[in-house]
């Protein structure tokens, strides 16, 4: 039976909700409203004057083939980051779940990268993989492996995906591990008695029971790859070479803060907001149906 909490004081629930609502209003609704407003203007950088241009900013970016290209780049980047970060985390969690001795140490070590700021993560990976100063790049060169993210777009994409996914593995790991530990031991034991091997037990029992966690992480990782990977891209490739790693968020930055074109930048933010909202709605409507809580 569901337990219902009732409040005697009518004001109390609002009071309790207030901090969260205030944070949402100040850090989401207000800036989002500003972005929407700015997207209809063509201001000069210093804000001395602004002209209302209607949908001109949207027309400008949506007819720009390079903007549409950065959609494709973002789709590839996001899929790769989400897949790699979740797959590696799932693997590590499955392994850590079976560790008996010193599991605390493993867990702590795997969680560490989450505390690293994106820009720092980017610089750190650069030290390993930058062709002229990177340690790993040096040995790759000795082995005759062609590796040049400065000019090769695919290498550069691999580089930013690696660094972005690495940072997110920790977070995913925590959730997967918690999810696995919540799987009733009796189910696994019963399956083992029935003769199911480790592999089969994982895919037919543990993985399906993890589906709420997997779904939650899918949403979180997509949002992460969309918005929070800016620091990694900025420190590692600046969106290059060519435009190989210019994602939507990076383009918002480049147009707004390098080009001082705030109108176009605001319009792009609005589009980005719509894209992420649509993605989230799709996920909840279609994918959530296959999730068993």
């Amino acid at each position: 039976m569901e337990k219902r909490v009732s409040f005697n004081n009518r004001a109390l629930p609002y009071l309790l909700l207030f901090p969260q609502l205030a944070v949402t209003a100040v850090f989401f609704f207000w800036p989002a409203g500003q972005a929407l407003y700015q997207s209809f203007l063509r201001p000069d950088p210093f804000g001395l004057s602004a002209r209302f241009v209607g949908l001109e900013n949207f027309r400008y970016i949506l007819t720009d083939p390079l903007y549409l290209q950065s959609f494709a780049t973002t789709a590839i980047f996001t899929s790769l980051v989400t897949f790699v970060a979740m797959a590696v985390a799932l693997f590590l969690a499955a392994m850590a779940d079976q560790v008996i001795k010193g599991s605390g140490v493993y867990r702590t070590l795997i969680v560490w990268p989450y505390a690293v700021a994106p820009a720092v993560a980017g610089v750190m990976w650069m030290f390993m993989l930058q062709p002229s100063i990177g340690v790993i790049a040096f040995y790759m060169k000795q082995l005759g492996i062609t590796w040049n993210p400065l000019l090769d777009g695919q290498d550069a994409m691999l580089l930013v995906v690696l660094a972005s996914a690495w940072k997110q593995v920790s977070y995913n790991f925590l959730f997967f591990l918690a999810g696995m530990q919540a799987v009733p031991r009796s189910l696994i034991e019963a399956a083992a008695i029935d003769g199911a091997g480790r592999w089969r037990r994982f895919w037919t029992i543990i993985f399906p029971l993890l589906s709420p966690t997997t779904f939650f992480l899918l949403v979180i990782n997509i949002v992460y790859a969309f918005f929070e990977t800016f620091g990694v891209i900025h420190t590692m490739t600046s969106g290059g070479p060519g435009r190989a790693t210019t994602t939507l968020v990076y383009k918002v930055y480049a147009d707004g803060f390098v080009g001082q074109d705030l109108g176009s930048s605001a319009a792009q933010s609005v589009i980005l907001m719509v894209v992420v909202s649509v993605l989230t709605v799709i996920q909840f409507r279609y994918i959530e149906r296959r999730v068993h809580y």
Binding site: G153, S238, G239, P241, G242, D255, G259, Q260
Partner: peptide
Amino acid sequence: GSFDQIRAVINEELEMVWQGD
């Protein structure tokens, strides 16, 4: 105007030239 961004554009295009694309 927007010179920093024009330089970024030039960088992007030249990188594709150096790569042979």
